[in-house]
Write a protein that binds this DNA or RNA. Structure first.
Length: 461
RNA sequence: GGCGGCGUAGCCAAGUGGUAAGGCAGGGGACUGCAAAUCCCCGAAUCCCCGGUUCGAAUCCGGGCGCCGCCUCCA
């Protein structure tokens, strides 16, 4: 699997987060099914935007690229995304690109003009097959800049002759630098072969980037380039497109200052990867309710599992509860197998959580039986954790430490007040008990009296 | 202008020919000293509209309306 990574000239935003997390989910899932999967994601570290930024700041392109590669890792690690197996940089694959360009020239698909090399789009008969457009249609669409050097306005640069203040490499056509599209063809084929299974990226890359990659790769090899293309949908801010000009860009690092990464992961992964998503902080807040519910169930599971060990005859009811969860898990996998239908898969998780809660709360089963069923549920949740990267916290931490620095009371004080309240309740002094509960509530702490007499606390929304 | 996508409950979101998943919010009930949590029950009569195909359509076809993306760097 090859995924187009980022051009390293700025911090990553919520849109990058979606792409990163969608392909992280896909990688995690494929890894479970096909342990030999290889995940390659590139860094574009030579490009107009980087050059501009470097010139503006009086730094080298390499310095700019290094800075934002570093930032990229900080962000992806903070998101809990697994590192790809191979992360090639464009600047480290110039020879491969030159070789590929030469091949295209030799085949008559590309031509040289004043040290530039262009791909002659009309020579590649299938041009437009990915994006579903024809050359004629695109020409009719106008808005194409006139470039004297190109034979055809749609031809694109494989190699650009260097201008002053630009990085350059020696090539058969003089000093210059690669065009944007060629790096992905060269690097993906180097690491994955001339034909490989999955190529991914954002929706916006379909045209022209991926269309051009196909032209370059298939033009050079005569073989199919990619079996499956996967393109993730965009994230809008509210209903608007996120863009620099609108000034509504939301950075990953800014979100993660306020929200646990699992909230963002669930928010972005519960929608099918191809659909657009409207991002709002309110929607992210609401996700907390759903995740809390899952964590409460996880908490219950952990309590039950500590009861494990004693042998006990298993009733039909427990067997049935287990079977229900197993079935939901099977359906979860069927949904994932159907074009990564995460929305449906998570629906199955919630169904089984409901079934599990029902069994634990309403059946007359013994603790050991419940523990047995809890094991099945824990197993399912564990697999969800592996694939979605959620539910990885200990429930106790999830409910208590999430925003502990904003808490006005220390954990010790809270425990002390709970203790005081428990005494009051035993004495049937409910007025005092409720005062304490109300006081804690005013401090953002909710109490939960359990049937076993224990009182738990957690943070309010 | 060309190409593509979308329009499902108050909100989010699956389903794409056979009685409309799931989440959040809401109402009622069980439980509780009261709560909280949990569970149960309830809720879509336009699945954007109009035609058509079919025994049967949210799902297919045709025509509208509305929203969005791409066609220029972009996840």
């Amino acid at each position: 699997m090859y995924v187009c990574g980022v051009t390293v000239y700025d911090y990553c935003h919520i849109g990058h987060a979606r792409s990163i997390l969608v392909f992280d989910m896909i990688y995690r899932y494929l890894k479970k099914k096909f342990p030999k999967v290889v995940y390659v994601r590139n860094f574009t570290d030579v490009d107009d935007k980087i050059i501009n930024k470097a010139n503006r700041e009086g730094k080298s392109c390499k310095e700019i690229a290094e800075r934002y590669i570093q930032a990229f890792y900080e962000d992806t690690d903070a998101l809990g995304a697994l590192r790809p197996d191979i992360e090639p940089k464009a600047t480290e694959h110039i020879p491969e690109m030159i070789e590929l360009i030469q091949k295209l020239i030799d085949k008559g698909l590309a031509y040289v003009v004043d040290g530039d090399v262009y791909y002659e789009v009309r020579k590649f008969k299938e041009y437009g097959k990915l994006s579903g457009r024809s050359i004629e249609e695109m020409l009719a669409g106008a808005r194409i800049e006139i470039d004297e050097k190109k034979k055809d306005p749609l031809d694109f640069a494989l190699w650009k002759a260097s201008k002053p203040n630009e990085p350059w490499w020696e090539s058969p056509w003089g000093r210059g630098r690669p065009g944007w599209h060629i790096e992905c063809s060269a690097m993906s084929m180097k690491y994955l072969g001339e034909t490989f299974d999955i190529h991914g990226g954002g929706m916006d890359l379909i045209f022209p980037h991926h269309e051009n990659e196909i032209a370059q790769s298939e033009g050079a090899t005569g073989k199919p380039f990619v079996i499956y293309w996967i393109h993730n949908g965009f994230v809008n801010i509210g209903k608007e497109k996120m863009s620099k000009s609108l000034g509504n860009i939301i950075l990953i690092r800014d979100i993660l200052k306020r929200y646990d990464r699992e909230l963002l992961r669930l928010f972005l992964l519960k929608t099918h990867y191809r659909s657009p998503i409207d991002f709002t902080f309110e929607a992210l807040d609401k996700e907390k309710e759903s995740l809390d519910r899952l964590y409460r169930t996880k908490e219950k599971i952990e309590e039950l599992l500590s009861e494990k060990g004693k042998e006990h005859p298993v009733t039909e009811e427990a067997e049935k509860a287990k079977a229900e969860i197993e079935k939901a898990k099977e359906e979860f996998y069927q949904a994932m197998d159907d074009d990564f239908n995460t929305a449906m898969a998570l629906g199955k998780l919630f169904e089984s959580v409901r079934d599990f809660n029902r069994f634990v709360d309403k059946s007359g089963a013994s603790l050991t039986e419940k523990a047995l069923v809890a094991e099945t549920m824990a197993d399912f949740m564990g697999e969800v954790e592996e694939i979605f990267g959620i539910l990885s916290h200990k429930p106790s931490e999830w409910f208590k430490e999430a925003k502990s620095e904003e808490l006005e009371l220390s954990a010790e004080e809270i425990e002390r007040l709970i203790e005081e309240r428990s005494r009051a309740r035993k004495e049937k002094n409910y007025k005092k008990a409720d005062e304490i509960r109300d006081f804690l509530k005013s401090k953002g702490i909710l109490l939960e009296d359990r049937p076993d007499g224990k009182t738990l606390w957690r943070l309010a929304k």
